[in-house]
Design a protein around this nucleic acid. Sequence first.
DNA 1: CTGTATCCTTAGGGATACTG
DNA 2: CAGTATCCCTAAGGATACAG
Lengths: 145, 145
Amino acid sequence: MSRPTQNDWSGCPTRYAAGIIGDKWCFLLMRDILLHGKRTYGEFASSPEGISTNILANRLATLEAAGMLTREIDPRKGSRVCYFPTRKLRDLLPALLGIMVWSTKYDPQTEAPASFAASHQKDPLATVAWYEAEIDRIDAEIVGT
Amino acid sequence: MSRPTQNDWSGCPTRYAAGIIGDKWCFLLMRDILLHGKRTYGEFASSPEGISTNILANRLATLEAAGMLTREIDPRKGSRVCYFPTRKLRDLLPALLGIMVWSTKYDPQTEAPASFAASHQKDPLATVAWYEAEIDRIDAEIVGT
DNA sequence: CTGTATCCTTAGGGATACTG
DNA sequence: CAGTATCCCTAAGGATACAG
């Protein structure tokens, strides 16, 4: 069976991701959407990292252009804008989960362990259950293909 | 059982990662080390993305300071420097695999599918086998804790 | 070959004011 | 509240020369 060897990475599948994930603000915004359930401009702007409004607008446009989110009117309340994750963004969740597990293990700043870290250490299977529930919740929100 | 809820992300485990992964050059260098088996300054410099030497030196120092790699003399050939992945970096492989799978699915630039993409589509289990072999190969190289 | 150092230009991005 | 626009400064980083 042919499996990838070391010298066959001409079309390296990570270079593409580097353009989107390899940007601090895009990365944090995707986190906010996928993991924190944030959907509105104001919610993004209030993140503890303190993104400035021009950068926020710029990155929202970037992510929309990259097909990671869609900009729509809030179905519940007219004249209010919401950003929804696309399937493409949703599919990044497994990778994000991997990053979270890694950070939980190595981040020295996590003074009081977050509930994720706690439950993950106690029972990794609980993390899987959490992950799948998260997937379901986001799937229910994805509108287009 | 307590599992993470949406409003409990005060100690968000992704913010830490954003500082390391959320940088294009660090991201690509970690890819080179983990997936392309690159170990020397010249090998990094010759990557198709064309990193300039001052940035390369800067990021190698950053990654070393972050405990992601160690700088050592080549055991086989004296007076030649090599950079080895630490366990901390190695543990990022699962996340990187997730990113690769994602890119393989969505990167429109992947004109000729890489062997990874091909084998992954043909048989996902082959990817797992590839991944475990990769882990073993890197583990054999990790020197310190 | 493995880096360092310097120059210099551009882009990133914070602060803030402004608009619908 | 959801942005847009401007100002302005710093840092990122490309090119290149130099050193061990």
